[in-house]
Write a protein that binds this DNA or RNA. Structure first.
Lengths: 194, 194
DNA sequence: TCATCTACCTACCGGTCGGTAGACTTCAGG
DNA sequence: CCTGAAGTCTACCGACCGGTAGGTAGATGA
């Protein structure tokens, strides 16, 4: 091997975070080993340990990093649209297109996160995903486009709805991300009542 | 050990299925070992292998068995009520109370199920959970209580909504099973539009 | 009474996983 | 040219997991 060594510190670290996101999102935290992640980032496991103290740290930092990233995209997307329904479609569509599997990974827990790490990921979830979505709902209620409701419950419900459908399979009826987003928002906004 | 031996064959087998359901539902299929399940059923792992050829067979039989069981409860519950909204509340309430985590376990897949086992679990899911729920929606559309819609999509959405909240934790705002069911159905039937 | 069967056990195997020790390579600064 | 830190590697460990080999206690039936 020539001088691949001595790569800039941030690049390898970043590749490891991305690999952890991609692989764990697809196969679950327990479905893929650290070797798999290291291999995907084109390094070996000890190199992974050079950058992250242990598995739980890698997990926590990865989740926080992708939540922050998707939080930014979510805010941008929902601000770009006007009207509550359109903002919701934009937000939901972004989450699906970005394959944002944060909530699902959060629910996996159990890898032995410390209380501190757990509260870190929860806080990242609320700050970056939950709150922006709830904000859109609150705005809609205030402007009269949406009815009065428990917006926290509705926001969580929306995220729970989006989550199982972010994978590349399992898009009902072969819907595209945009169609799926529109259908989800139509369902939740209009309801199924006559 | 006195004469615990020579227990009736069906009892131990049944206890293993129940243990697998309870433990895997709580900790995920990869989060608990066969030793854990055997221990919970008060036998050893080889005894588990006496009844089930391997892990994937135990998984498949367990999923089919609990789906069948919950399917029965689901039909009974939704038939006992009248009116689409009430039938939906009854159905959703049953699934939450029964902590029916079938859909989540199904999504885990990946334990190396054969194609045959996979189609077996999918078919059980559709026959016992999905179809009864879609039936309630179809009836509602036919009677005019619900608007025309893609009932397959709506049924899947309802199951996706229920699923993340069947766990013992994570009931938003400390809702009881019945309150949660009512809130979910209100959200989906009435929508959040003004 | 004795062979056979069911139901279960202890003890182990091969493989994988998270994690570590320590050597090697590259490169910047003196 | 030397040194030392940064970055990466090979090679390994103990724990655990799925699965198996081989044996045993007790009920059953001829």
């Amino acid at each position: 091997m020539p001088s691949d060594r001595r790569r800039p510190r941030s690049s390898t670290r970043e590749r490891l975070l991305q690999a952890a996101d991609r692989i764990w999102s697809e196969r679950g935290v327990r479905g893929a080993s650290l070797d798999d992640i290291a291999r995907d980032a084109a390094v070996t496991k000890p190199t992974l340990y050079y950058y992250f103290a242990d598995k739980s740290v890698l997990f926590t930092e990865m989740v926080c990093s992708v939540l922050e990233q998707h939080g930014g995209g979510l805010r941008t997307a929902s601000r770009a649209a006007s009207g509550s329904r359109e903002r919701l479609v934009a937000a939901v569509g972004y989450l699906i297109r970005a394959r944002c599997s944060g909530p699902r990974l959060l629910r996996e827990g159990g890898i032995g996160l410390t209380i501190d790490q757990l509260s870190q990921t929860r806080s990242a979830f609320f700050r970056h995903l939950f709150s922006p979505l709830q904000q859109v709902l609150d705005d809609g209620v205030r402007s009269g486009e949406l009815r009065a409701m428990d917006t926290a419950f509705a926001a969580q419900a929306l995220l729970n709805l989006v989550d199982p459908w972010t994978g590349r399979e399992a898009r009902p009826g072969g819907r595209s991300a945009d169609e799926l987003a529109a259908d989800i928002v139509d369902l939740v906004v209009d309801g199924i009542g006559a």
